[in-house]
Simulated assay, not measured.
Amino acid sequence: MPVSRTPASRTPVSRTPSLRAWGELLRLPALFTVPGDALAGAAAASTRPDRRTALAIASSLCLYEAGMALNDWADREEDAAERPHRPLPSGRVRPASALGAACALTAAGLALAARAGRPALTVAAPLAATVWSYDLLLKRTPAGPFAMATARGLDLLLGAAATGGRFRPALPSAALLSTHTLAVTTVSRHETRDGTPAAPLAALATTGALTWLLHHRPPRDRSPLPRRHPALAAVTTTALTAAYAATVARPYFHAALNPSPPLTQRAVGAGIRATIPLQCALAARSGAVATALFTAALAPVAQRFAKRVSVT
């Protein structure tokens, strides 16, 4: 059914955008899925989080939000037709303000990475380039999901590079996180129109494969120090892996049975929320149980905010 709306050129624009409008533009509930990237990266590098980890997290938050603002700026015409309630087509936030926020947040993210050290900036620069390339060039191409997956993997590597000065030990964890992101992004391409069962079924199969890998393939221990409480780490990894699978299995299955926009959006939201238990499981399998439990505490906060502001 066609939606009656005010033409974009005549949409009244608020002079003072509300905090809620900015919260919707930046998708604030999804912000809680970001710190776990750097923390999992530090854990994979067998390094305890420190001040540089905090700088990496701050850098990640800025670059992530830059991507959110730039995404809506690039999609403003499409959203006017398919999602006129979004902040830009509804006139609650000016397009120029969204683009300016994306530029400012990108600059802040790179500056914070530079403060964390040259290795961190070496990862943050291609991360920022990937974010901008995805939103402006690659989103609607077959390379789009792969670009998004690359960005998420680089975000984890940023934490490893900032904390430990090297990112190579964190590559396996980054690959697992990127694979999950690839599946979610592929499903999200059908959020606003009827799709096919193929994408959610593939995402469901991917979840099963990642669950198996997390449970049966512990990472190679590159740390010269002995791991503390390996049994506790194993039990925690198993529990968090189960939580990851449980978060997405049913929504993916429902979307496969009925690939309608509402169920697809629900599956995408579940996939975004599942990022947190996945990050926790990655940290726990690296032996960082405390880091995993701290990251897990972000999940209920994200869920609470998601009831007020959509993550998709």
Rank of each mutant, 00 (worst) to 15 (best):
A149R: 04
A199Q: 10
A209F: 12
Q265K: 11
R76F: 01
H190D: 15
I272V: 12
F253Y: 13
A108W: 01
L182E: 10
A21D: 06
V248G: 03
A81S: 02
A284K: 02
A234T: 12
L88G: 00
V131I: 13
S14C: 15
A299L: 15
S4I: 11
A116P: 08
R10S: 15
R115Q: 12
N71M: 04
V311W: 00
A231R: 13
T295A: 15
L176G: 02
T207C: 12
R118G: 09
C280A: 15
G36R: 05
G144S: 05
M148F: 00
T179M: 07
F305V: 14
R227Y: 04
S223L: 07
R76H: 06
V123L: 08
L282A: 08
A209S: 15
A270E: 02
L232D: 15
R86Q: 03
A290E: 08
A267H: 00
A124Y: 02
P145A: 05
S188C: 09
G269C: 11
L110Y: 00
A8H: 04
A288V: 01
A242S: 15
A81K: 00
R83N: 00
S97V: 14
P12L: 13
G41N: 07
R140Q: 05
A202T: 13
A114Y: 08
L182W: 14
R285M: 08
V235W: 14
G109Q: 02
A40S: 07
G36D: 06
A297L: 14
P218V: 09
S178H: 09
A113P: 06
L137K: 04
L210S: 09
S133M: 07
A114T: 05
R222Y: 06
A203R: 01
A45V: 01
Q303M: 12
P224Y: 10
S60H: 06
R5N: 05
K139R: 13
S4F: 13
T130E: 02
V301A: 13
H229G: 13
G269L: 08
L63N: 04
M68A: 14
T247K: 07
L232R: 12
V301P: 04
R52C: 10
T295Q: 06
A147L: 03
R76L: 07
P218L: 05
T186G: 10
D155N: 15
C62R: 07
P29I: 10
L136R: 12
P17G: 03
A54F: 09
L99Y: 03
L127A: 11
G287W: 01
G208W: 09
G36F: 02
L177T: 08
V93R: 01
H190P: 01
L105K: 05
A290N: 07
P277C: 08
G159H: 01
P29F: 01
H229C: 12
V3S: 03
D194G: 13
A239D: 14
A98V: 06
A40H: 01
H216V: 10
V184M: 07
D75N: 00
T211C: 06
S260D: 10
R115E: 14
A120V: 05
L127C: 08
A205S: 14
